[in-house]
Design a protein around this nucleic acid. Structure first.
Lengths: 115, 115
DNA sequence: TCAATATATTCCCATTTGGGAATATGTCAA
DNA sequence: TTGACATATTCCCAAATGGGAATATATTGA
């Protein structure tokens, strides 16, 4: 059974907190690698490697300019993730409803045990 | 540098496609392990192991009943993921706008090169 | 052409991961 | 108590992962 490698799978790619941080940074605008290295404070090799994974997952795109490479976010795959999680939206809204109902019931019956 | 283990981190937990499948199944309602094994067709040990990871990440909850254990989705952590991806929403909506604008411009200037 | 700059890739290593098989644990029913 | 059933855990293994250090590649300017 082949596992889905982080190098091509969006979910795996963003599972790494560092890569989320990197993406977050890029979300505020296109940047060359040097800028990322400076802002993140990581070794350059690591930044490049993480960018490589994000690139493989289609989460970022490169625009070469001279000897620099400007990276920017490619949001499509994240949209898929967003939609997958949305599948469970009704669960958490329902849960909030339950909690609210419980709180209200507790407020009107102060002696009653909360459960 | 400690990595975030799949056993406690939501993003890692959900990075595994099998676990997404499992969650998807559970999203349609609480079930005992036996039912999951039957519906998924995986070895029982694997189902239990994946459930263990999901449990560790707070994504599912157990309700013991006799010798069975009923699992159900615990949506809170997914909400966090949903919100994280939402951070990039403006990117994909903007991108759609760009694509639309391009298509419209192409439609009104049929001879112009698309870029 | 040569040196400097920007970035990617390679090699090595410790750790984690998921699968398979076997086994342990807990619960019920006879 | 004993055996069947439901589920979790352990052990072993091959593969993948991220970090560090070093090195390769490409581009620009002197």
């Amino acid at each position: 059974m082949p596992r889905t490698p982080a190098s091509t799978d969006v979910f795996h790619a963003v599972a790494e907190p560092r890569r989320r941080e990197l993406l977050g940074l890029l979300s505020s605008g296109e940047r060359p690698v040097t800028a990322l290295v400076r802002e993140l404070g990581w070794p350059q090799a690591q930044v490049s490697k993480h960018l490589g994974v994000l690139r493989g997952a289609g989460l970022v795109c490169v625009r070469p300019e001279g000897r620099q490479r400007f990276y920017h976010v490619q949001p499509e795959p994240l949209k898929a993730m967003h939609e997958w999680t949305a599948m469970f939206e009704r669960h958490w809204t329902r849960q909030v409803d339950r909690i609210k109902a419980r709180a209200e019931s507790a407020a009107s019956n102060p002696t009653k045990e909360i459960r």
